[in-house]
Design a protein around this nucleic acid. Structure first.
Lengths: 200, 200
DNA sequence: CAATATAAGTTTCTCCTGTAAACATGGAGG
DNA sequence: CCTCCATGTTTACAGGAGAAACTTATATTG
């Protein structure tokens, strides 16, 4: 039982442990101002150990963002599966899952779309983001085939949809959406407005 | 003629000079990773001088963001004035001005909406942001009064509109909007989709 | 108009960070 | 059993944030 041992020289899975610590700090502070040394400290290793697993600080941040995109994708997929047969219902479910994810993980969500998680410099991150984006794209295509969504260029549909969902998520995070009550009503209403424009 | 003097001990308007330098660096690098010391260096003063004008580094960043909101507001107001009499046209003009501003000043735009420009910690910044947001709100109200926009809760209208415009701007900045061509077409189409849902 | 208070700069100092290099360790394969 | 290598550790260094103490020009006041 290696978990009862106090401190074996070799951690076992330091990479994972560092990621977990960093995710925890991100969730606690809702920002990624933490220092690499602090992450190492809290993980119980020397301040140089992380460099055996991440080229530099940004590299760790990009890995956090990648995990964020994977989790977001899972949340959206799950919500859409449970969201009824109608594409419109599925869309609403997926969008609310995205906004809910952002509200539950504001720091992580911000990091995912920040310049510090540069997708042009990290293929795995880029792929994860595209994969999650693809979930939306496939739903739009399905809706068009079924005749639920207007047959305009898929790019325009995607731009409008993604902008709306991501925009709402960012506004929700900033608290700019909840002047009086943080309820789902304005979000739902905004999505309905979009869908009224989207649908045939 | 004080401007011909080489280096008077008192700069004259160091605060403004620091802001200009920082804005230039922000525009050059499209990020705000620059250090306060570097700003001081390029402005030709000692590294401690900025602290006479800004409590800390973040304080300077917030001031940059405030200026960004003012400039964005001016750009949107100007575009809307020149955008025809129809509210729908005005909306399109204002939205495109916002997206154009973001594309011309990606770094500044990102900073304005980043957690580093914390609006809850800076009244002037908060006010500037609200003032610019108010431009959109007033247009929506005008549109409702004229009967151009659907008479749903103004909050829902605002959420949908602001999310769409801001979302498109962020996507445009990230280059995620221009898979093949960076043309205005997808943006215009996305705005039309929104307006189809917004209008009566 | 001199004396001086004050705003605006500068120097110096401390603590901390990111990151490189050299060194240590212990588990896996010959 | 012995040696290699991935994974840790120690040590070292260049820079940055910000505080404190010191300096200088400008504005005020008797």
């Amino acid at each position: 039982m290696p978990e009862t041992k106090d401190r074996p020289y070799h951690h076992g899975d330091l990479r994972r442990a560092l990621i977990d610590t960093a995710l925890a700090m991100l969730a606690a502070d809702q920002n990624w101002a933490f220092t690499l040394r602090e992450v190492a400290r809290r993980t119980g290793v020397s301040h140089a150990a992380p460099y055996k697993h991440f080229r530099d600080r940004e590299s760790l941040l990009r890995e956090l963002a990648r995990i964020g995109f994977i989790r977001l994708g899972q949340a959206m997929t799950a919500a859409m599966s449970a969201g009824g047969a109608c594409v419109r219902e599925k869309f609403i479910a997926g969008a609310q899952a995205c906004i809910g994810f952002a509200l539950c993980n504001p720091g992580l969500y911000r990091l995912m779309f920040s310049a510090d998680a540069d997708k042009t410099a990290d293929r795995p991150l880029h792929d994860a983001a595209m994969e999650t984006f693809g979930i939306l794209l496939r739903l739009l295509q399905e809706g068009q085939i079924r005749g639920s969504f207007r047959p305009i260029a898929i790019n325009a549909l995607a731009a409008a949809s993604w902008a709306q969902v991501h925009g709402l998520a960012m506004l929700a995070i900033s608290g700019q959406l909840a002047e009086e009550k943080v309820g789902r009503e304005p979000v739902r209403a905004a999505l309905d407005v979009l869908l009224d424009g989207l649908c045939c």
